[in-house]
Design a binder for these strands. Structure first.
Length: 569
RNA sequence: UGGGCUGUCGUUCAAUUGGCAGGACGGCGGAUUCUGGCUCCGCUAAUCUAGGUUCGAGUCCUAGCAGCCCAGCCA
């Protein structure tokens, strides 16, 4: 079993592969595991999956697919106090949505409770496990410290028969929580604290979401995970870096039991700027009411990202781009945004919506007249088809698309300036109307009838093209504009006396009433569109027929904002 | 101060295992454009430190330094 320590690729490699795929390639070449590849994604159903899990899902299912192998979905449900069916359901949905296909191999650690129990008796019989009757506090005291060895429990040398009897009575429910535990008998002086007689079973008179009240003793992670992997014939058990120390116990358990032994491999978990990714903190955000539930579009949860409008393809692409390695890293949120735009650009239909409207009256356009324009849903992909958009005398345009005193390089509407209304007409601003406070309330413009469709026969060019919506036909819709949940890159690094909650971005959600083109009236929740020149949006489930609600997935790149910022500075 | 893991452009992942340090994101500049979007082109910028071996070191050796993980009856 010496080769189970072979975490470093040392046989052969294909350049460009990550260290996990490199190792698997070598294993396949050498015939280890009969050249099979079988992975698993093993979440604990105690919270919603987040983008860090997405990395693991893409890795495990991806590796299986690439090597012609299999990947199981296994719920690591050994702690009845924290787990629930709600989480099982959400996890199943999220994995499926992300493209993970476990082909019916949906397993639960709790499926193996009886086998796990039998193996525990096997360890007792072999003199490799004992029932300890120390309290939790006493066990901690006996464990020693990082620099000092531990001391053995006075119960460590109980006889096999006594251990067996006690353990069976633990199972039978004769003891209260905490009265006894089953421990592996390894080495209280090990420099690896994990190996100082780790707890294998604890007593918990608790209802389990799947096994009900069948058990009152529950196995611990280290003991359960390796045996579960073994039972399922897993070849490569991929987990995150914090389990490196646990690998020694993983190997010890399987070797001591003498059963099939997969290879544990550890990679660095994902960190993302402007977000927190620990379950504890995400739960705190939900329970503290800082967000509106696990699927709040600001959450880095898979359900949150989905509701925000991120596509599974974008998430898969993101996971492929960040790579897999063993060095701790923090990925730039802008890479995620890039991946969102990359895919949405290809698949999202274009529509027009005005987020911050200002009224425009076309003075020379006939009162009461309505024209309709047929506009393509996607300028580069005719397969998306087209829709009809009404045009009339009174319109809305974006407030930011007009400047009374335009700065240099400003290409949009200004007094005396002609611009193109997307797919419609050229208009020129003639007059600015203001209220008593000097706020602009209306723009009086004229249009050139000869530019119908947004194009001039005489070859005349306009510098700007802006989007618009006919006021009389506009759909008044709620639009939610999301920004980073946190205002600092690393909310985890809180200064003295503060926590990550103190770094929440007060402007992470801004709700506006936008003016949308009428074609959007009955859009189905989950539909993703691009509001031209603004960004990508996704119809939210809070919307109703005729009254849609949109979430901003991500804004378009805005090079004008950069220019303006630079000129201003 | 025990043990383990990790150090390469601003970020992230590579480097045919000792042979010109490359890609992507970001940033900057340009072309194109009925979305200041998309697309295209160009530029920018890195081997933790100090020694050593070698014709040649990101890669091997020695000694340091820095970061992360571990003392749950959590996973």
């Amino acid at each position: 079993m010496s080769d189970h320590n072979a975490n470093e690729p040392d046989r052969k490699a294909e350049p460009g592969l990550d260290f996990i795929r490199t190792l698997i390639t070598a294993d396949n070449a050498s015939g280890r595991f009969d050249s099979r590849v079988h992975t698993r994604f093993p979440p604990e159903p105690n919270g919603y999956l987040h983008i860090g899990h997405a990395k693991s899902i893409c890795l495990n299912f991806g590796v299986a697919r690439e090597f012609g192998g299999k990947c199981n979905l296994r719920f690591d449900d050994t702690n009845p106090l924290k787990e629930s069916q709600e989480y099982v359901d959400s996890i199943r949905e999220d994995v499926k949505w992300l493209g993970g296909d476990w082909e019916g191999r949906e397993f639960y650690a709790s499926d193996y409770f009886e086998q796990l129990y039998q193996h525990a008796e096997q360890l007792i019989l072999a003199g490799k496990a004992y029932v300890d009757s120390l309290s939790a506090d006493e066990i901690r005291e006996h464990r020693g410290t990082l620099t000092a060895p531990g001391t053995e429990s006075p119960y460590r040398n109980r006889g096999v028969e006594e251990n067996l009897d006690l353990f069976r009575r633990m199972r039978a429910g004769e003891f209260k929580d905490g009265e006894h535990v089953l421990r592996a008998k390894i080495d209280m002086a090990s420099p690896n604290v994990v190996m100082r007689d780790p707890t294998l079973y604890r007593i918990r008179h608790a209802h389990h979401h799947r096994t009900g009240n069948a058990w009152c003793i529950y196995p611990m992670y280290d003991y359960t995970h390796c045996i579960s992997d073994s039972i399922e014939g897993i070849t490569h058990s991929i987990c995150t870096l914090e389990f490196v120390n646990n690998r020694e116990l993983y190997d010890w358990t399987l070797d001591t039991l003498g059963i099939y032994h997969p290879q544990q491999l550890e990679f660095a978990r994902l960190n993302l700027t402007y977000t927190v990714l620990s379950k504890r903190k995400l739960i705190q955000l939900v329970e503290g009411g800082h967000v509106n539930g696990w699927d709040d579009p600001r959450m880095p949860t898979i359900s949150g990202l989905r509701r925000r409008g991120v596509t599974p393809e974008a998430l898969q692409d993101f996971c492929a781009r960040i790579g897999v390695a063993k060095a701790d890293s923090v990925v730039d949120f802008s890479l995620l945004e890039f991946c969102m735009r990359e895919h949405l650009n290809a698949v999202a239909p274009r529509v027009m919506g005005v987020l911050d409207p200002i009224k425009v009256v076309i003075e020379n356009y006939p009162d009461g007249q309505v024209e309709t324009f047929d506009m393509p849903y996607h300028p580069e992909d005719a397969s998306h088809g087209s829709r009809t958009v009404p045009f009339s005398k009174v319109l809305y345009i974006e407030r930011d698309d007009f400047r009374e005193d335009p700065p240099k390089k400003y290409h949009r509407l200004a007094p005396g300036v002609e611009v193109r209304l997307r797919y419609a007409y050229y208009i020129t601003c003639r007059e600015v109307v203001k209220d008593a406070d000097g706020n602009i309330t209306e723009l009086r413009c004229t249009y050139d009838p000869a530019t119908k469709g947004g194009w001039s026969q005489d070859g005349r060019k306009v510098k700007g093209t802006i989007h618009w919506v006919s006021a009389a036909h506009a759909l008044h819709a709620e639009v939610r504009l999301y920004e980073h949940l946190f205002s600092v890159e690393n909310p985890n690094a809180a200064e003295e006396g503060k926590t990550f909650v103190d770094y929440l971005n007060p402007d992470s959600l801004k709700t506006v009433t936008a003016m949308l083109e009428p074609a959007l009236a009955d859009v189905a929740p989950g539909t993703r569109v691009q509001f031209e020149r603004i960004g990508y949006f996704c119809a939210d489930k809070d919307g109703t027929p005729g009254k849609p609600v949109f979430n901003r997935t991500v804004g378009l790149r805005d090079s004008w904002a950069k220019i303006e910022k630079k000129e201003g500075a």
